[in-house]
């Protein structure tokens, strides 16, 4: 009996990435065949955007999968990275770093996101665990995270104003592949996003901490019975969340060159949509969902003008969450379907 389920799980794990890659390749091929260079360019931008959505969607899916917690601070962690980096650069704090200042700024931005994420953990899970037992059964962390969303956004508004700011990267290189212009930062970003997610996937599957996380995902009570120190492992989820959101924020900042206190809002909601499309709690689902939403967005802007994809995507999300909470690709979730 156990043999057959193992095989089934293995097959599902294999199917998800394959589907994601096939969907991507088909869309690229279709784009180039139907629309030539312009469309091909849109496909490339869609993949870049998709890789950012994907990284944020993985952050969402991880906290839901392990802690059963829809963490609304993720979009602001994303934003904090960009705004902190811009603040450091424009404030002239990094003149010593010379030409590499922008890189240092972004690194500090990611660190800020991780620190903020740990602050959220301090006031949601750690405190609750002491007072109310298993925090994953409550709506309280969700409400706290909404509170932090408001705090972070308004702190940045007070400190830096509501204007959109330019984050200049003194770095430009383009590759010409079969007549399509591909920015090197775009390529590097895609690669980095994929690397971060792959590393996370490895951590979850192969390491001791990953096993602990998966045990908590199954059931926090059983996990503590099995000797997993839940209090020490939960912060790891928040560190990973901060890291993923921060890296996504840094990649966004480098590629689009604009930062604002609201930069996380659109990316955050699209990432939630991507997560649901791919299946809540599933990392491969978030990857596939992110790429699909990114591609759909740039292509629909090309064909229909404006971001008309939002309503369609959200309509699809509504249908999926009700009829097929496993998501489009039916990937097994890392957590249990506890709710």
């Amino acid at each position: 009996m156990s043999d057959s389920t193992d095989i089934a799980v293995a097959r599902m794990r294999l199917r998800a990435p394959v589907i994601a890659v096939v969907v991507t390749l088909v869309m690229i091929a279709l784009g180039i065949a139907l629309g030539g260079k312009v469309i091909a360019h849109q496909v490339v931008s869609g993949l870049l955007l998709g890789s950012i959505y994907m990284t944020v969607a993985v952050a969402f899916t991880l906290t839901i999968g392990v802690l059963n917690f829809l963490n609304f601070t993720i979009p602001t962690l994303f934003m904090l990275t960009g705004m902190a980096a811009w603040g450091l650069l424009s404030g002239g704090y990094l003149t010593l770093a010379g030409r590499g200042a922008w890189l240092v700024a972004l690194a500090v931005g990611v660190v800020a996101a991780v620190a903020a994420s740990l602050l959220v953990e301090r006031f949601t899970f750690r405190y609750l665990k002491m007072k109310h037992g298993d925090a994953t059964e409550h709506a309280i962390p969700l409400v706290s995270s909404l509170g932090f969303l408001i705090i972070f956004e308004n702190l940045v508004l007070i400190a830096m104003g509501s204007d959109s700011q330019r984050f200049a990267v003194p770095f430009r290189a383009d590759l010409h592949v079969a007549g399509i212009v591909v920015g090197v930062p775009q390529l590097v970003s895609c690669a980095m996003a994929v690397a971060v997610v792959a590393a996370l996937s490895f951590v979850l599957k192969r390491t001791k901490i990953g096993r602990a996380l998966r045990t908590i995902a199954e059931n926090p009570d059983t996990a503590s019975l099995l000797g997993v120190d839940v209090g020490r492992v939960v912060p790891v989820v928040f560190i990973l969340t901060g890291l993923l959101s921060g890296v996504a924020g840094a990649l966004f900042t480098v590629n689009y060159g604009d930062v604002s206190p609201f930069m996380g809002d659109n990316v955050g909601t699209k990432a939630i949509a991507a997560m649901v499309l791919g299946g809540v709690g599933s990392i491969w689902g978030a990857i596939a969902g992110g790429l699909v939403v990114g591609l759909a967005e740039t292509l629909s802007i090309q064909f229909f003008g404006g971001d008309s994809v939002a309503m369609t995507v959200w309509g699809l999300v509504l249908v999926i969450i009700v009829l097929r909470p496993k998501g489009l690709f039916g990937v097994a979730a890392i957590g249990k379907g506890k709710m």
């Binding site: 839901i64 829809l70 969700l142 939002a310 309503m311 959200w314 309509g315 999300v317 969450i321």
Partner: peptide, 16 residues
């Protein structure tokens, strides 16, 4: 839907 999923479903409704 329940819990987090209901939050997501109603959120999606608002966005639609």
């Amino acid at each position: 839907t329940r819990g987090v999923y209901m939050v997501l479903a109603t959120f999606a409704f608002g966005e639609v």
